[in-house]
Design a protein around this nucleic acid. Structure first.
Length: 490
RNA sequence: GGCGCUAUCGUCUAGGGGUUAGGACGUGAGAUUCUCAAUCUUAAAACACGGGUUCGAUUCCCGUUAGCGCUACCA
């Protein structure tokens, strides 16, 4: 029995979780995993997943990125129950929260300009002091602050952090984490333009949306005490925090563009099957409960979405960062492709053909399906069907020079393959057994190894040195194409 | 720099005061063969370091080191 929500303030009630990306970039791998964990958690407990777009950074947020994020989630098969909400459309909520905080004395006006703050910060670091806001405006009396504000002076609203004491929270993954309040600075709640800052908008929204569990990246751990303070100041119950360790690149630094593909959608373009990606991602930083404790039985890693949902829980999340391993992703992908039926694969493959500009004759459905079945055990990704396997679906395919060099450079072999073509043309029954028999007999007659003929024929038929069993290839190509391609050698 | 978090094979991880430290991906070797993949067999591969606590620490505590995160009127 997994019962990871035992810490919930709403014990027994259905959890309400959210995925709250900022549309300042595409949906990256880390964000996708956060979304996945939230999704799995919601589905496991029959709770609600809310999608909220945190677009309060007007400078950097774009509509295009919003679409990119939604597209990424759809590709991964992650659906949400509510939203998407846009923070830019919920300004009233944040302003109301700001007013409330101001009224209760938890917030105060700050008239410092950006330039002043930067100067002070620079000076502080230069002098070796922590670059914390010095609380200058906190000393201004409320009357004076109101007067200046009403006089039209630009003012931000800051949160008055208690000068002493400790703020803590019990993280579902990391356990209790404490921060000395003296380490926290009087952070900005409302910018001088009236817009909310991250801390205010998240908390106001999470309270308003009755979020019970906040599952997010561990990069937010340091932000959490400020938010805890905000919950307390607002008189709201604390949700369960579950911070998820970060995903790193092979060099163990935070995954970024430098490491190649970081956008989820780029994995689609690489020919990765979404289910494989999802399975791989789920196991990055989370381990399902052991099947039977004490047994050496291997815990399976290929897990369907149903199994993932059933098994998922916060207690399986690890505390250390994880390196993104492309090799393992590739393995998941081949496993999924191999397990898929040809029917399921076909539409995915057709997309690849379209992308590659290939025109494939799809009239003979049975032939298509059996050819896919022949090929899929050695496919590494969906693109293979438009690249390495191209010769199976169209007559317009390239030949690998290295393969020719290796198996077809001998003129005698080419000549023999030409003879083979004639034998095949005259063959009444073009079957796997017959084609093999004829080839082997020819090899014996010529006094060479069958393998030499087989390998040469493979290159002639597929343009590749690598392909399935030759006679199966011939059946997939059919008599006409087989003969024609063999004849072309001379 | 300050604060916070983390530390088991190359990678993802299981485990936990006494174990041959388990699995998966990857890697090596062999078998098979018609190339490649698959498959089967098999091999190599880890408890960061130093102090405690203890009869006994990889496991618990402290420190060191390293890595990561945060340190904005970004999110």
């Amino acid at each position: 029995m997994t019962d990871s929500h035992k810490n919930s303030p709403l014990d027994g009630a259905k959890p309400r979780v959210r995925f709250a990306p900022s549309p300042t970039g595409y949906l990256h791998v880390g964000g996708a995993r956060t979304a996945l964990f939230n999704w799995l958690y919601a589905r496991h407990f029959g709770g609600t997943l809310i999608l909220r777009i945190e677009d309060t950074d007007l400078e950097r947020s774009t509509e295009e990125m919003v679409e990119g994020i939604l597209q990424g989630m759809r590709w991964l098969g992650l659906d949400w129950d509510d939203g998407p909400y846009f923070q830019t459309k919920r300004m009233d909520i944040y302003r109301a929260a700001g007013v409330k905080l101001l009224a209760s004395g938890h917030g105060y006006y700050c008239f410092c300009t950006k330039e002043q703050l930067e100067d002070r910060r620079a000076k502080a670091t230069a002098e070796g002091r922590p670059p914390k806001y010095d609380g200058a405006c906190r000393k201004i009396s409320r009357e004076e602050a109101e007067r200046r504000k009403n006089a039209g002076e630009a003012a931000a609203v800051r949160f008055a952090v208690p000068e002493s004491g400790v703020t803590f929270f019990d993280d579902a993954v990391f356990g209790r984490i404490e921060f000395a309040n003296s380490e926290l600075e009087d952070f900005v709640l409302l910018r001088s333009d009236g817009g909310p800052t991250y801390h205010l908008s998240v908390v106001a929204d999470d309270v308003d949306m009755k979020i019970t569990h906040i599952i997010r990246g561990a990069d937010h751990i340091s932000n959490t005490p400020k938010q805890v303070l905000l919950y307390q100041a607002l008189g709201a119950a604390l949700p369960v925090f579950a911070h998820v360790p970060l995903i790193l690149g092979p060099d163990k630094t935070r995954l970024s563009k430098r490491h190649g593909a970081t956008s989820v959608i780029s994995y689609r373009d690489l020919g990765i099957v979404p289910e494989a990606f999802r399975n791989f991602l789920a196991l990055l930083g989370w381990t399902p409960p052991q099947t039977a404790a004490g047994t050496n039985e291997a815990t399976p890693e290929i897990l369907s979405d149903t199994q993932l949902i059933q098994l998922f829980g916060l207690d399986g999340i690890s505390r250390s960062n994880a390196v993104f391993d492309n090799d393992k992703l590739a393995w998941f992908n081949t496993e999924y492709i191999r397990a898929y039926s040809a029917e399921k694969l076909l539409p995915l493959i057709e997309e690849e053909w379209t992308k590659a500009g290939m025109r494939v004759d799809t009239r003979d459905g049975n032939w298509l399906l059996s050819t896919i079945d022949l090929l899929k055990p050695r496919a590494r990704n969906l693109k293979d069907f438009a690249t390495s396997f191209r010769a199976f679906f169209t007559d317009d395919y390239p030949s690998d020079p290295a393969a020719i060099e290796k198996f077809l450079k001998d003129g005698n072999i080419r000549k023999m393959l030409g003879e083979l073509a004639d034998l095949y043309a005259a063959l009444p029954e073009f079957t796997e057994a017959e084609t093999e028999r004829v080839l082997r007999e020819l090899a014996t007659a010529k006094g060479i190894k069958a393998g030499a003929l087989i390998n040469g024929a493979r290159v002639a038929l597929t343009g590749q040195g690598v392909a399935p069993s030759l006679f199966a290839v011939m059946m997939a190509l059919g008599k006409e194409r087989t003969v024609k391609r063999l004849q072309k050698l001379n």
